[in-house]
């Protein structure tokens, strides 16, 4: 990662009257990076320590217990940790796919059609951005229990499909990416409205859809309140709720700390990997959305 910055710094190395100023931003940013990387590197190293090493060796001295920690974690309640991981992938992946589909279709429609009630519908859907999740979570639980769905996968999936900010973003992308003339030309050729959406609009909106998918994926992956309220059986838990129950069970037993630390470390890997591989999409598309907002 650092290798790429070397040519850049060499280019700037020629004498310049304001050069000393470059030191201040660099130092501040490096301090910021140390602060953010500190707990992550700690948890990675702590996960390698055995029970005894955790409390005795120096904070950043690697230990010898990684394999036994992993074995302990995977043996915990017959490997329920794997189930939490799979559940999280299911909730985040399924929820983000459905959410992206609904947001894209809605954003496209709100951006390209003129029809009575359009502004009303837009304001209703967007107004949801300001609704605190607290007014929703409890009645959602009660309503889903009445429907017999509380505690099931659906109870975590369904409430997270509608995402006002994604609809707003999709509308911004549709406005920017789809020229009205293209749709008109398609209509003159006799294409149906659905075909226009599928074959003309969708390819143009794909970069925006990737961003919406990523945002929703991360939001659902990180969500704690909704699954915490909805789910009772630890076989349906996502990682966040699973780790919380692990802590609640083991906080008073330092012998379980290794288990919790190893679980936390493993739970970071998938999202950080996704995040690093999708770097380009975060950057370009965030700017695409943010400029318009």
């Amino acid at each position: 990662m650092t290798a790429t910055t070397l040519p850049g710094s060499r280019r700037h190395a020629r004498p310049s009257p304001r050069r000393p100023l470059g030191i201040v931003p660099t130092v501040v940013l490096v301090l910021g990076a140390i602060y953010t990387l500190f707990p992550v590197s700690w948890v990675v190293i702590a996960a390698t320590k055995s029970k005894a090493e955790l409390f005795s060796t120096a904070t950043f001295a690697p230990g010898t217990g990684l394999l036994s920690n992993l074995a302990d974690l995977f043996a915990y309640r017959d490997g329920v940790f794997w189930l939490w991981l799979l559940n999280t992938i299911l909730y985040a992946g399924g929820g983000a796919v459905l959410s992206t589909a609904v947001s894209t279709l809605s954003g496209y429609t709100l951006a390209t059609y003129r029809f009575p009630g359009r502004n009303l519908i837009f304001n209703l859907l967007i107004g949801g951005i300001l609704v605190p999740s607290v007014v929703l979570a409890i009645p959602q639980y009660l309503l889903l229990s009445a429907a017999g769905l509380a505690g099931t996968y659906w109870s975590v999936l369904l409430p997270q499909i509608l995402h006002p900010y994604s609809i707003y973003l999709a509308r911004v992308y549709a406005r920017a990416a789809i020229p009205g003339s293209v749709l008109e030309a398609g209509r003159l050729d006799g294409a149906s409205e659905w075909r226009l959406f599928r074959q003309v609009a969708l390819p143009m909106m794909t970069p925006g859809m990737v961003t919406i998918f990523l945002f929703q994926f991360v939001a659902i992956w990180n969500n704690f309140l909704l699954p915490f309220i909805m789910l009772g059986d630890d076989h349906t838990f996502p990682l966040t709720v699973g780790l919380y129950t692990l802590l609640a069970a083991g906080a008073n037993q330092p012998s379980l700390y290794n288990l919790i630390i190893t679980g936390t470390m493993l739970s970071l890997i998938p999202l950080i990997a996704l995040f690093l591989t999708m770097q380009r999409h975060w950057r370009t598309d965030l700017s695409g959305g943010a400029v318009k907002s």
């Binding site: 931003p25 940013l29 910021g32 707990p39």
Partner: peptide, 30 residues
């Protein structure tokens, strides 16, 4: 204008976005 390590520090500082609140609280909690 004259910042070094911009890419590395930007990614590092953005990284916690990919860490669930529960995991962040657990790490700092310990």
């Amino acid at each position: 204008t004259h910042v070094r390590l911009a890419r590395f520090t930007r990614i590092s500082i953005f990284l916690p976005y990919a860490v669930p609140g529960v995991a962040a609280t657990l790490m700092w909690g310990f």
